[in-house]
């Protein structure tokens, strides 16, 4: 199948998604729209972690930290000055925090860039570490971000965080960013950089011996992943309207890691599909934690049950299907068309 047909089919799919969003905005209730929004944000986050861990093999547990940076930067830029005056009750905000203003798109980009900057700053020292140490060190970084967020009340309003963040992040923005992330990462993975990343993942020593500047390439992947994690955090902040340091704990990283592992490390299609499935499941299982009423009789909710189910799912996944549902396979139009016309399809890239 030619590149031209592929491009046409891609544009067609994007148009269909647009039509679906247009339909959804008119016809679905707020709760369903919220789930769709979360799906888009989770796909962005999963793709960014998949780039760092799945494609480049850098086991990073610092996603919550990058998301926090993105969310705080974006929120400060889109909160109105009057809102900030009301919010900062512990201590008044610094002047530059008080007066910073930007339109939503610029604010999200700024959140992503700030996260990428921190990605470079922590990446330069940390990316020399081996896989499990890198995981612990980046987890430490995420915790440090959180502790600073609590202790810098003139920037972040301390433990109280921000409330009433303007809800600019609607379906168009979220899915727009989602498609952009998808486009950038697919292009990157199919380029020479993608091959270099995979080479580093599969055998770092061999990659080095082939003359690859391993450190530089790792840093590139890490910073780009941090950028999209920051974007995801920024969108999430605007979506849920409230952020505080408690939101950005390790659980947040755990959820993203679960999506990436379930979908398949090194499979973009896997991250997208698992992003949809796990977001829906996470929301659906909320019912387990809330009480259910049958007339007068109350079945009490079980707090904690949701994460019990999900942590078990992750353990089963890693024990019995380590490669995830998709492995390293990818969706392609020729495969889909082949399937459709019962021809033997080609797999993967």
């Amino acid at each position: 199948m030619g590149a031209k047909t592929n491009a046409i089919l891609n544009i067609l799919a994007a148009v269909l998604l647009g039509l679906f969003i247009w339909w959804a905005e008119e016809n679905l209730d707020g709760y369903m729209i919220q789930i769709l929004n979360l799906i888009a944000v989770n796909i962005i986050l999963a793709l960014s972690l998949n780039l760092i861990y799945g494609f480049t093999g850098l086991f990073s547990l610092g996603h919550a930290g990058f998301m926090a940076i993105g969310a705080y930067v974006c929120s400060i830029l889109i909160l109105a000055p009057e809102q900030k005056e009301m919010l900062f009750i512990l201590e008044p905000a610094y002047d530059w925090v008080q007066s910073a203003q930007a339109p939503f798109f610029v604010a999200v980009v700024a959140g992503g860039l700030a996260a990428a900057l921190f990605g470079v700053l922590v990446g330069i020292p940390l990316l020399r570490l081996g896989d499990d140490y890198l995981g612990m060190a980046t987890l430490g970084f995420a915790e440090i971000v959180r502790i600073f967020a609590i202790n810098l009340p003139r920037v972040t309003n301390g433990a109280l965080g921000f409330k009433g963040i303007p809800d600019h992040a609607n379906l168009w923005w979220n899915f727009g960013w989602c498609l952009f992330t998808l486009y950038v990462i697919i292009r990157l993975i199919r380029s020479n950089s993608g091959n270099v990343f995979k080479a580093i993942r599969d055998d770092e020593t061999a990659a080095k011996a082939m003359g690859i500047d391993v450190f530089r390439q790792k840093l590139l992947s890490f910073a780009l992943g941090a950028f999209f994690a920051g974007v995801g955090g920024a969108l999430l902040g605007s979506l849920v309207a409230t952020i505080d340091p408690k939101m950005f704990t390790f659980v947040l990283t755990f959820n993203v890691l679960m999506i990436v592992v379930t979908g398949g490390l090194g499979s973009i299609t896997g991250s997208v599909l698992a992003g949809i499935a796990i977001t829906v499941l996470l929301e659906w299982l909320r019912f387990v934690e809330n009480p259910v009423y049958f007339g007068d009789w109350e079945l009490p909710g079980i707090p904690g049950m949701r994460m019990v189910v999900f942590s078990l799912a992750l353990i089963f996944m890693i024990l019995f299907r380590r490669e995830g549902f998709m492995g390293k396979r990818e969706f392609s139009w020729s495969w889909a068309v082949g399937r459709f016309f019962k021809k033997a399809g080609r797999h993967g890239i």
């Binding site: 086991f59 499990d132 995981g135 659980v251 755990f254 890691l257 592992v261 079980i302 707090p303 904690g304 049950m305 949701r306 994460m307 019990v308 999900f310 942590s311 078990l312 992750l314 353990i315 890693i318 024990l319």
Partner: peptide, 17 residues
């Protein structure tokens, strides 16, 4: 290590339950 992270969350949330 991922399995260990899963076990950690599992035990923690089982205690909450």
């Amino acid at each position: 290590l991922i399995s260990a992270i899963g076990v950690s969350f599992f035990l923690q949330n089982l205690t909450i339950v």
